[in-house]
Design a protein around this nucleic acid. Structure first.
Length: 760
RNA sequence: GGAAGCUUAGCUCAGCCGGGAGAGCAUCUGCCUUACAAGCAGGGGGUCAUAGGUUCGAUUCCUAUAGCUUCCACCA
């Protein structure tokens, strides 16, 4: 408990500070109290059920022990690093023989606990020795030579000393061959009673002494330097010692089977489905789950020991021993692995083991969203726990997302200090921007790099939505007709159709959990179709004299905006909610509004397609102007050869406005447009523009001549530099290459300008 | 050692159940056009890692190779 308070001193302040920032108050004692009360009944229930079914047992296992901190460490708390050490080659004599086996070890002191030497069964060198007995030097113990696949023929001498109590692999070998386990280390890292004359010595002191004695006995063959990975305590950096200890385990085979079946039978589906492979791979190779932890913070194991030797597993704290009636019961000191209680999350949060209304209504849940890195820790354990305790899978879908990495693609971590503070980003760009930036263009299960630029892009889009809405609302004064009552223009039908296909695409994408694609489709529709095209197309009507046309345009604008906001709401919750509250008419909160549904009657495929011809016409005229350097604001006359006269006429005001034209004339051929014209073919029309309309010939000639002069100057400059041998020889290659590239560019420009001048 | 993934424009990444290569950012050109310069219009830029295979056709499917990444195990 003291250590728990020390931990609170170190980290508690920061946690409370963060909670305060978020507007929560926090009281440390109460937090601890709440954890205990709310969760313990479910945890105890789960533990007891497994215990009663014989799925929990207590057994020996190798754990990581830090002799300095005198505590067990979880695998995650062990840091491996490359250490320089030695290989000591020892000779172990064969009983009643002159022969011996040479083994290599990096930890000579563990020989005190050796109970066998292992060789690979297919290793010819040692075949004759398998089954024979060795005499363990110094100790004098008789130990067998066993054959085990674990041994790597090519490594060391091909013979391995086996110390089951102090090495995880040796432990396994020990189990397979029924070898005794002799623990020779004390908790403080000194040699224990089993170490004979070395008892009481520090592990490194004993190592020195043992090597010296082996040398004196003539059994030290050689010493080789050897670099190898050694585990260190993450807190004090001391070398950890694996040693055998009593732990609690859950038998996994009976739990894993139904959990595998559930996914095979599609009761639970992974998205993307490749993650099911990871899930299977884990469950198929699973070992019993060690659930006891030597921590000071967590749920204590609900097991009590009586003086009479009885072990009691109980949901309630027992006051008397059910066997002897004694009252001196002590609870197991160990805590449960945090994942044991986390595995209960889908139902313990709903009140399980009580049959609450929440549990009945919400369980099994629909979808679990999580990162791929915790499939083994959490998803898998929720699955088999849910099936075991409730008889049902805990969720139908598992949506796996990637990790957010830093700008260089590194995992964000405390030690690197490359994490970001979401609150800072929110202050800078807004919460919606952060949310949208993490959703846009990401594929399920793939990692994404966090950059300010992405958040900025999201912010710009949201700003666009805001401004477009402002524009619509600014004009939306007076009565506005409903969409059903409006006589729709071709442009109206086009945007409404585009809205319908967007609704369909977004809906399908979201059903497939392709949120990144949904977000992209939505931004494309909102920005390109609605803002850049439809709003501009609607301006002639909005600014025109015809009141009815104006109200009709507003009706369409509001209809599309309203739908778009509801589509965008899952991606941009706060801003869409705000805008929605300003829309005319009685509306509630957008959060309870229906998500738009695809409506066939509002999909005018043919007319929408035809209208794209008008858009293409406008685009083509714009491009023609840019090509000849005509300012966009300069109005030109358009001469069109087209069989779509009616379509163009209906949209005439829009074409004039958006293409920057003064008038449109329909002609039978280009000749009618005048002698000198520029022409271009668009989808629905062959376009002719009188050259003089596009450019003022005199001004253009002057501009081109000036440009030619400048370009020739550049050619002279670059050419001069490149003609200088010293420059070529001494300047960095990149500079020279750049200069050559510039020269080529200017020569090319010169030719183009000369051609233009000739044609003028 | 076991498993999974990635390699597409200068950068960050989508996409492709096999048939015309995309976005954002950056860059270039021109615009302060009365919602928005955090913007508008237009443009340039890619042998879709490499080598084979299947196919009428491969960036997409298969095999191998290389480089990078992650998870797990672990070096007597």
């Amino acid at each position: 408990m003291e250590r728990a308070w020390a931990w609170k001193e170190q980290y508690g302040g920061r946690i409370i500070e963060q909670l305060k920032k978020l507007g929560c108050s926090c009281d440390w004692d109460r937090l601890a109290f709440t954890m205990d009360e709310r969760c313990s009944s479910a945890v105890r229930e789960a533990f007891c059920r497994l215990y009663e079914k014989g799925l929990i047992y207590r057994g020996s296992r190798i754990i990581n022990w830090c002799p300095d901190c005198r505590t067990a460490l979880s695998d995650e708390e062990v840091v491996y690093s490359e250490d320089k050490g030695n290989f000591w080659y020892f000779r172990y004599p064969v009983k009643d023989s002159e022969e011996f086996i040479t083994i290599a070890t990096t930890r000579p002191e563990t020989m005190l606990g050796d109970t066998a030497v292992a060789v690979n069964p297919s290793d010819g060198r040692y075949a004759s020795l398998v089954g024979k007995t060795l005499i363990l030097p110094i100790v004098g113990r008789e130990i067998p030579v066993v054959a085990d696949e674990y041994v790597d023929i090519g490594f060391g001498t091909g013979a391995v000393k086996i110390t089951p109590a102090h090495d995880p692999n040796d432990f396994e070998v020990g189990l397979r061959h029924n070898l005794p386990m002799i623990r020779i280390l004390n908790d403080d890292g000194t040699i224990g009673e089993q170490g004979g004359k070395f008892a009481g010595q520090d592990r490194y002191e004993a190592r020195k002494n043992i090597v010296a004695e082996m040398k004196a006995l003539g059994l030290l063959e050689k010493i080789e330097p050897h670099a190898h990975n050694v585990g260190h305590c993450h807190r004090c950096n001391a070398t950890i010692e694996p040693l055998v200890s009593k732990q609690w385990f859950v038998k996994m085979a009976p739990l894993a089977k139904p959990a595998i079946d559930a996914v095979v039978k599609n009761k639970t589906k992974f998205t993307p489905d490749r993650f099911a492979k990871i899930y299977f791979n884990w469950l198929e190779n699973i070992r019993d789950w060690c659930i006891s932890r030597q921590l000071w913070w967590g749920h204590r194991i609900p097991v009590w020991y009586c003086e009479c030797g009885e072990t009691v597993c109980s949901r309630e704290t027992p006051s008397v021993c059910p066997k002897c009636g004694g009252t001196h019961l002590t609870q197991d000191e160990d805590c449960l692995d945090t994942w044991f209680s986390s595995a209960l999350w889908p139902f313990s949060t709903l009140g399980w083991p009580e049959e609450t209304a929440d549990f009945k209504y919400f369980y099994p849940t629909d979808v679990l969203v999580t990162g791929y890195d915790i499939i083994p820790f959490w998803v898998m354990r929720m699955m088999f726990s849910g099936i075991e305790y409730t008889g049902k899978v805990p969720f139908r879908d598992v949506l796996i997302h990637g990790l957010v990495r830093d700008e260089q693609g590194r995992k964000m971590s405390k030690s690197l200090g490359n994490g970001i503070d979401p609150l800072e980003i929110i202050d800078k760009y807004g919460a919606d921007s952060l949310r949208l930036s993490l959703l846009t263009g990401v594929a399920p299960g793939n990692d994404t790099r966090f950059t300010d630029a992405k958040v900025e892009a999201a912010r710009n889009f949201i700003n666009k939505v805001w401004n477009a809405s402002r524009f619509v609302l600014m004009n939306a004064k007076g009565p506005i007709p409903k969409i059903e009552d409006i006589k729709l223009q071709p442009a109206d039908r086009w945007i409404i159709s585009r809205l319908q296909s967007t609704i369909r695409e977004v809906t399908v994408s979201m059903q497939k959990y392709d949120l990144g694609i949904a977000a992209v489709k939505l931004t494309d529709f909102m920005w390109d179709d609605f803002c850049d095209w439809y709003i501009e197309l609607s301006k002639p009507a909005l600014y025109g004299e015809d009141k009815e046309r104006k109200r009709a345009a507003l009706g369409v604008l509001l209809f599309v905006l309203d739908s778009a906001l509801r589509l965008l709401h899952p991606f941009i919750p706060f801003v869409t909610e705000e805008i929605y509250s300003y829309l005319p008419g009685k509306r509630g909160s957008i959060i309870t509004a229906d998500f738009p549904r695809y409506n066939t009657r509002l999909s005018y495929k043919k007319e929408a397609k035809a209208f794209e011809g008008v858009i293409d016409l406008i685009k083509t005229v714009r491009a023609m102007k840019v090509a000849v350097n005509c300012p966009p604001a300069k109005k030109v006359r358009l001469f069109l050869v087209t069989d779509q006269k009616r379509l163009v006429c209906v949209n005439k005001s829009s074409v004039l406005r958006l293409a920057g034209a003064s008038e449109i004339e329909f002609v039978a051929s280009g000749a009618e447009a005048g002698e000198k014209t520029v022409s271009q073919v668009s989808e629905i029309a062959h376009i002719f523009v009188p050259l003089g309309e596009l450019v003022n010939l005199e001004e253009e000639r002057a501009r081109l001549e000036k440009e030619l002069e400048r370009v020739e100057g550049e050619i002279a400059r670059a050419g001069g530099k490149l003609a200088n041998n010293n420059f070529i020889a001494k300047a960095p290659k990149k500079v020279v290459d750049d200069e050559r590239a510039k020269l080529e560019k200017y020569i090319d420009m010169k030719q183009k300008i000369e051609k233009q001048l000739k044609e003028l």
